[in-house]
Each structure stands twice: as C-alpha cells, then as structure tokens.
Amino acid sequence: MGKRWREAFAARTVSVLSPALLLAGWELLARAGLVDVRVFSSPSRILGTLIPALLSGELLYHTWVSVCRIVLGFAAGALPGVVLGLSMGLFPFVRAALQPMVAVTFPIPKLAIMPLILLVFGLGETSKVFTIAVGVFYLVLINTMAGVLNIDRIYLDVARSFGASRRDFYLTVALPGALPMIFAGFKLGMGTALLLIVAAELSAARAGVGYWIWRAYDMFDIERMFSALLMMSALGFVFSYALDVLERWVIPWKPPSSSAG
C-alpha cells in the first residue's frame, strides 16, 4: 500500500509541478528577453490584463454571449441528431434513405459552408447558432445511429416477444441502449462547438469570445487575446464537466468502472 500511495503522490505532484514549471520558465525567458513578449507575452502580463477584464464584467459579458450561442446551437443540432439517429438505427428503410446524404455531406468541413450560411441566414444570431448546430448535428447523428446498431439483437427480440409498440422500441430499447454512444457524440459535438464559435464570431459579430479574440488580433493586443484563450479553456472544462455530471445522472445503470476518468 505504501508503495502505491507514494506512486500516486508522485504522479499528482508531477501533474501540478509540470505546468507550474512551464509557466515559471515562460516568465523567466520573457523577463530575460529571450522570448518576444510582443508575440508571446508573459504570464504576469496576461494576468495583469485578465483580472481587470474579469472584474469589469467585460470578458464575462462576451463569454455569456458565446455560451448562449453554443448552448442554443448545441441543442438545435443535438436534438434532431438524436431523433434521426435513433430512426436510422432502428429502421433499415430510413437508414437506406438517408445514409447516402449523410455520407456525402458529413465530410464537408463546416467552416467551408459558413459563407453559404451567411448568405442564407444573414449576419445575425441565426447564422452563428446554425453553424454550431450543423457541426453538432452530424456527430450526434452518427454516434446515435452507431449506438443503436450496436445494441445486442437480443434486446430487440425481447421487446418484440413482449409485444412492444414502435414507440416502445424507441423509448425502452433504442434510446437507453444508445445513450452511452449518444453521450460520446455529445462530447465530440461540444468540442466542435467550441471550435466553430470562434470562427462564427469572426464574421459580423458584435460580441462573443471569438469576437474578442479577433478584435485583440486587430489591435495587436496579445494579452487580451491570451485572456480570451484562457476563458475558452475554462469554458471547455466546464462544459465537459457538465456533460459528465449529466451522463452519470441519465445513465445510472452504467457500471462505475467504465465511467471513471
């Protein structure tokens, strides 16, 4: 036990020390003039910008705008993704009808259709929300369908032999059986949403973390840019934590061993 405890302690110490060392090294190199602070800044300079930006509420406002777009876009993409994914998984006919379109449109980078989205939805909120929705939709759809197809056939037999209706197939077999994969899709979708928000806020945005980053770039204000990057990192952490909590709550039957980490 002593050995294992010591190993765990050493691992934890290293996890704390390595980023601390990196930051300290960065700071030292910046102060020594070995790193160009005009491009790479330094931890102390970034903190000096980040804290006032947070306290004034300015950064939080822009974060809030982005969070709203992400949450709306995520919901607008995930919901139809789950419904269609379940249908495509359950019914070979639906799969045969939709699979070709999904296969052809999925590989198109979502950033490449942004100009089209702007043409269709204009420069307002809708185009940003829609961009995120499209990115999330495909990942959730494909994972949900795979989740249903991976459900052991025996459960479909059981449902059939007990006289399950079509609705019962959705709600008592396909949905719960695919939930672990659906959540895998949610997590991938969330990563994509964070990627797309920055790009979506590049064009014709008046607020948002992405807008903040591009503005900082225009003004060559490296510290403001890094502050926003830190905020993005925090957002990613919070969203993935929230999804983990939601997953544990929605999938109580999942053995704890596989949900660890």
Binding site: V158, T172, V173, P176, G177, L179
Partner: peptide
C-alpha cells in the same frame, strides 16, 4: 442474458405488463 441493463430488477420484471 436478455434482461435490459438499463432497467432495475423491478422494472425488468414488470416489462411485459408495461408493454
């Protein structure tokens, strides 16, 4: 093994009645 992993023992036993 054909009992639903996502239902409790009680809900599994009740499945046919529920359907």
């Amino acid at each position: 093994t054909s009992i639903f992993p996502w239902l409790t023992v009680k809900d599994n036993v009740a499945y046919g009645l529920r359907m």
